[in-house]
Design a protein around this nucleic acid. Structure first.
Lengths: 225, 225
DNA sequence: GTCTATAGTCGGATAGAC
DNA sequence: GTCTATCCGACTATAGAC
């Protein structure tokens, strides 16, 4: 304890405010989160919000941009691998299925983990249920490219074009199986008797979804032929 | 136009307020919906909220109870038919599958229609993402019984006990496939190029989910044997 | 850059006339 | 039962000292 100021000078107010805002906006939603909550959580003065971000709205938009940045660094490389594989001429069905399994596992880890990314998922889901003016930024820079890549992979496995309605719907149903465990967490926990999503629980969920997905793909191929 | 008062005297203020509140709370969420919005929509005086419901909180709880009442009258008979069938000794697999298809179709109609029930679904989903003090009322009186019945049906089809983790998870994945089309409606519409869920679109979704569900069940049976 | 103090607005609830 | 008027607290944003 040698000459330390009262305030931790590790990070500046702007950065701490942004970090805290992800957490607070996720927990309470944009409307319910007050500027006083935000600054209390960040340990900064209330004036920091208009000063650095031009207001509560600006802070929220900064949070959205931060989410996109983290999201792309988290799942982007995985998506890039998918795109590279899809560009190849000799991609085998077994390989494609492996890639899909890996992607489902990655998204589940992202969605169900207790890490900071947990808050991001909450904000993204909230934006979709109740789109705010920043929804477009989120959609065009993150969701749309991600979804399109998965659709192409699933279309390949189904043996149809990625622009077909069936491929698009099928992708949504696969993602829906994952997202329910996030959007209806309280419901899942109560019905299963779990207390949270630990490693074991996440593994059980991922295993179930992968088996379902394989079954859906296999049935489609059988149905076609 | 024979001697009509300015205000339509058809229904009393309490009833109109409750009806409008379902709509307003669904659109904006509890926090973002202000009492002034609520009374403007209902065409009643602001004092009607504390007078009839004891405050904004009380009005919201009344909305939740109304939702349970409507929900049970809407899906309750269907669920009752399921329970009766499950109690029989001679329930065939084909029959059970038919019942599950019918239930999926009913829920999809409930979730994706443009009727008043649309607002109910929005409130229910919001409550699950961000449970408020009234979540318990909703869970115990509506969601839990409904979910338990579907789990029993799916467990029967999977050939396992309804208390197994696999049956519970499988039910959630089936419901997840449905719910995604409600929770991520904006996303689905943009990616599919649809402008809304009409008869045709709902039919395509239901058809996809029923095929998926059948595939999941068939694969599980194949996997076991 | 960070603080205090405060302006200006809007929220929900109430008192009391009718 | 329904209205107007008003209270009081909480909100976001700003002004200006340091």
């Amino acid at each position: 304890m040698v000459a330390a100021k009262a305030k931790i000078p590790t990070r500046d107010a702007k950065e701490r405010l942004l970090d805290a805002a992800i957490c607070v906006f996720a927990r309470y939603g944009f409307e319910a989160a007050s500027t006083r909550m935000l600054v209390r959580e960040a340990g900064v003065n209330i004036s920091a919000i208009p000063y650095y971000f031009g207001g509560k709205d600006g802070l929220y938009e900064a949070v959205i941009r931060q989410i996109i940045s983290i999201g792309l660094s988290e799942l982007g490389p995985q998506a890039e691998k998918l795109r590279t594989a899809l560009a190849r001429d000799d991609l085998s069905e077994a390989e494609a299925r492996q890639l899909l399994h890996a992607f489902i596992t990655a998204i589940a880890g992202f969605l169900l983990s207790g890490r900071a990314t947990l808050h991001m998922a909450q904000i993204i889901i909230r934006e979709q249920m109740q789109p705010s003016p920043v929804f477009n930024i989120l959609y065009e820079n993150m969701m749309q490219p991600m979804h399109h890549t998965v659709t192409r992979l699933i279309a390949f496995l189904l043996g149809v074009d990625a622009t077909t309605q069936d491929a698009i719907l099928c992708t949504h149903t696969v993602l829906g199986q994952l997202l329910i465990f996030k959007t209806h967490k309280e419901f899942v926990l109560r019905s299963s008797g779990w207390t949270g999503y630990g490693e074991e629980e996440t593994a059980a969920i991922v295993s179930r979804i992968i088996r379902n997905t394989d079954a859906i793909i296999a049935a489609h191929k059988g149905y076609q032929s």
